[in-house]
Computed example of a mutant assay.
Amino acid sequence: MRTVGRLVTSLMLAVLVLSGCTDGGGVKNPVKAVAPKDPLTIETNVDNGASSVPVDTLVTVDGFDGQLSDVSLASQDGKTKVPGDIRGVRWTAQQFLEPGTSYVLTAAGTGDDGKKVTSTTRFTTKALSLDEQTYPAVAPLQGETVGVGMPVIVSFDLPVKDRAAFEKRMKVTAQPATVGGWYWLSDNTAHWRPKSYWKPGTKVSVDLALNSVPAGDGIYGQQDQRVDFTVGRSVVSIVDTKRHRMTVKIDGKARRTIPVSTGDASHRSRNGTKLVMEKHESIDMDAATTGVDSDDPNYYNLKGVKYALRVTNSGEFLHAAPWSAASQGNANVSHGCVGMSTANAGWLFSQSKRGDVVRYVGSPRRLEPANGWTDWNVSWSDWLEGSALQGEDPAA
């Protein structure tokens, strides 16, 4: 009985094994069905055929169910190309757009299904008048060699209300690296200066990525700017109004002490640190430009004044003054300018450049803020408070 039972059990197991390897139709090892892969879908944040697209639009392209491989954005005439980069599934433009311009956006990639897809989007940006664009003028000039006190000056012809948005895109880099910062004198003017005087030989680059950046009140930046300049040797002059002497130091060494005459008791030369703003080998000096009427006994109109270096907006110069030779080194008889012999003025003129430092001491009259490039009369802590970012990370 045990033998028969074992035989029956073995036959039953064999039947079960055979049943597990076949189905009713006799098909062996069925393959599970795989869902089909999706094609690439391309989406942009600008509609095809759109008009009056805001110029401060950063164009983006997204690729879903695949990978973007190539994106280009250019004006229809091909003259303007907008750079961008792909991160993950998104391409993002690195610049804003030009006003009143027709653009062609082309994107291509491969879907998860292995098939290539290309998309073309055409659109036009909103036109802007000159009254809706602010132009950034920069000093120093491209390639200029300047003095150790020279600030970077950006002047806007229309006011910038959103100073922070602009300052984030206004970069100054130097070699060797130099600590410095921006200070807004007004909505139309911003200065960047180092914490201390520039090191002679420093190479400086100014990059203003302001094209189409919103300035506020419906105004936009008119264009980007790039200016490179070099800091020359150190020329620092000290004008002692009490002793009627000016000491000129070049690279830290006193090179010449010059007898001078400065402003008289009614027209004191202003105390403080000034910078050479302009150089004129010859210039006419008319007191009317400083608000003195021609009927005033203090009126003057001097033709062809030689070797003039402007240091204030109000009209203070260092220049040749042969008419006051007897007073130079002895008395102050000018209307505020520093007068010296023609020979000394010619020598100083030959040594000077924009941004050279001229420090006045001994006068009871103080230099007014912004009467010239008065940056070095502001403490570093106060200077930092003039930034629109106030310690905020510019990259944020």
Rank of each mutant, 00 (worst) to 15 (best):
S334Y: 04
A254G: 04
N330Y: 14
V333I: 04
Q328N: 06
V231Y: 03
D240F: 10
A308C: 06
G291A: 08
K253M: 04
T289R: 15
A326G: 03
T262G: 08
D228Q: 14
A287W: 07
G252Q: 13
Y299G: 02
A320Q: 05
V231W: 03
V311R: 06
V235H: 09
D228R: 12
P297E: 03
E281Y: 06
T262A: 10
S266K: 13
L309A: 09
L302V: 14
N330K: 15
Q225P: 00
N271Y: 13
C337Y: 01
S282M: 12
V239F: 01
P259F: 10
V311E: 00
Q222S: 15
M246Y: 04
D286E: 10
R243V: 03
K303N: 10
A331I: 09
S294Q: 14
Y307G: 01
A254N: 15
F317S: 05
V276A: 04
G218V: 02
R233P: 02
D284A: 02
V231E: 07
A288F: 01
Q223W: 13
N313P: 01
L302E: 12
R256A: 07
E278W: 01
V239T: 04
R268S: 10
P214K: 02
T289H: 11
N313Y: 14
A331P: 07
G221H: 01
E278H: 09
V248W: 05
E316K: 11
S282P: 05
W323H: 15
S324F: 14
T262I: 05
S334A: 12
T312P: 05
G291V: 07
S266M: 11
V338D: 06
A325E: 15
T230L: 13
N271S: 05
G263V: 06
T241K: 02
